[in-house]
Structures are given as C-alpha cells and as structure tokens.
Amino acid sequence: MNDVLKNDELKAHLSPETVLAQLKQHGVTHVVWLPDSETNWLYLLMKAEPSLTLVAVPREGLACAVAAGLASGGAVPVILIQNTGLMESGDSIRGWLFGFEVPVVFIVGMRGWNRHGPRTADTSSQYTEPFLNAFRINYYMVESDADAPRITLAFNEAKKTRHPVAVLVGDEYHGFLR
C-alpha cells in the first residue's frame, strides 16, 4: 500500500530525470548551482552525466557572473538555485545577466511554496514572484512531469529574448522519496 501511494505521489511531482532530460535537450554544458532543499537526487544524476560540468558556488550571486563568463566563452550554462538565493542575487542579475544579455535559464526551487494548503510559515515564496516581476524576469511554474514542456518554453524564450528566464519548481523534486 505504501509503495502504491509512493508511486502515485511521485507521478504527481517533477522528477529529476525530467529536469535532466530538459538540460540535455537544450544543450546545457554547465550547471552553476548551489543546492536547495530537495535536489540531492538530481545532483547525483547530474554528477553521473558526462555532458554536464557542475560548478558549485558558495553564494548565489556569484552564479550570475560565472554564467556570464561561460556564455561569453561559448558555453551553455543553467543556474540551479533556491528562491532565497535568487533574491540574494539581485545586483548580479542586473549587471552580469541583463547587462551582458545572457540567455540563461534559472531553475529555482520554490522554498515555502504550497499550492493546496494554507500559506506556510516560510516567507521565501511570498517574495519570489514580486522579485521576478520587479526585475522583469519572465517565469514558468512547474509542479509535475506534465509541466516539462514549460521548461522548453523557458529555454526557447531565453534564447529569443537574450534575457534570463526562470523556471519555478513549485513542489521541488522530492528526490529523497526514492
């Protein structure tokens, strides 16, 4: 019974394999990242993927400048961080990403997000969308594997506009349910 529930629950969530497939589909070469709450399974998948180089940073704003350098040199970076770190990165987003017209996708774990119940006590998600709107960064919420095409939309929009675009992972990855 527990196994059935677990499998049904997994189907309703965004799987790390789906995210990895999207990264490969869009030619990502480098994942510049700082772990969020539930991405350990994705980390293990990315680490085992020979086409990806993982670049861990100790503070999220640094990821923007690293990504700008990578893109300037012809690589294809993606930035994988938590919403708290996104907000920490404000001036770097302005200067290094918008300033250099870097077509990068942020994949952002939405800490504090809860679609179905009352607001959580964690305020992180309450500030995330206003932050993105203030910076005029378009974003797509994804909550299950069925939303995967929205990740493709984000990559395509970033390339077309030469601006950063965000993918908000509404229920995180649930990697630890494995």
Binding site: H30, V55, V57, L62, A65, A67, G69, S72, G73, S92
Partner: peptide
Amino acid sequence: GGHAAFAFGLALA
C-alpha cells in the same frame, strides 16, 4: 564582486 567569477567562467568555457 563578479570579476573573478566572470573570468573563471570564461576560462572554463
């Protein structure tokens, strides 16, 4: 605060 990170990214690429 980003020059070293930028140049490092360029070196990786």
